[in-house]
């Protein structure tokens, strides 16, 4: 048997170790979206605030839009909220909110307290519209292009880096 074969177990170990090392750097809780580059799903929601226009699939055509899934009971939503406020003040992009599994009065109180960055808010008490979007937790943030396709999904709260490294460059690319 050639001498070099004695190195085979070591090589095998190196391969397995490299494979597992890569696995350790990935967060298994964050799933790739099945909806990337697909048209935004079909949904039709009533407005969170009575009297406002509702939020449905038809609203996601013609503009680059940021869709944010949020709930008043969600602590990370509170953490990312200032970033959304800043985006809204800069008027960089239309921001539509999907209020997920939340009571109307709680959500409205939350927005009164922290400010309302949303141009449109749909109220999804049952979570059914969320399922259409593939939501499995809040917050989640999506970017929709002019053709109404989902181009980006962020699971969990946005942080400064998410905004500057991922979202803002993509908005720029999509609005060109």
């Amino acid at each position: 048997m050639p001498r070099i074969l004695f190195l085979a177990p070591l090589a095998l170990f190196a391969i397995v170790a490299a494979y597992l090392a890569v696995g350790l750097t990935r967060d298994a809780r964050i799933l790739p979206s099945a909806l990337i580059d697909k048209p935004a799903p079909q949904f039709d929601l009533k407005a969170l605030k009575d009297g406002d226009p509702g939020f449905s699939t038809a609203d996601l055509k013609g503009d680059v839009i940021l869709v944010n899934i949020f709930a008043s009971w969600c602590v990370p939503c509170r953490a990312e909220h200032p970033l959304l406020m800043r985006l809204a003040q800069d008027k960089t992009i239309k921001i539509y909110g999907l209020n997920w599994k939340d009571r109307k009065k709680d959500a409205i109180a939350w927005l009164n307290e922290l400010g309302d960055p949303y141009d449109l808010i749909g109220h999804d008490l049952s979570g059914r519209a969320g399922i259409e979007w593939g939501v499995y937790g809040v917050p989640e943030t999506y970017l929709i292009d002019r053709d109404g396709r989902i181009r980006y999904k962020k699971v969990g709260p946005m942080v400064e880096e998410t905004l500057t490294n991922e979202i803002l460059p993509l908005i720029q690319e999509l609005t060109q």
Binding site: L31, P32, S33, A34, L35, E132, W133, G134, Y136
Partner: peptide, 8 residues
């Protein structure tokens, strides 16, 4: 379900 959430 797979269309919305993927194979996972």
């Amino acid at each position: 379900l797979v269309a919305r959430y993927g194979d996972f």
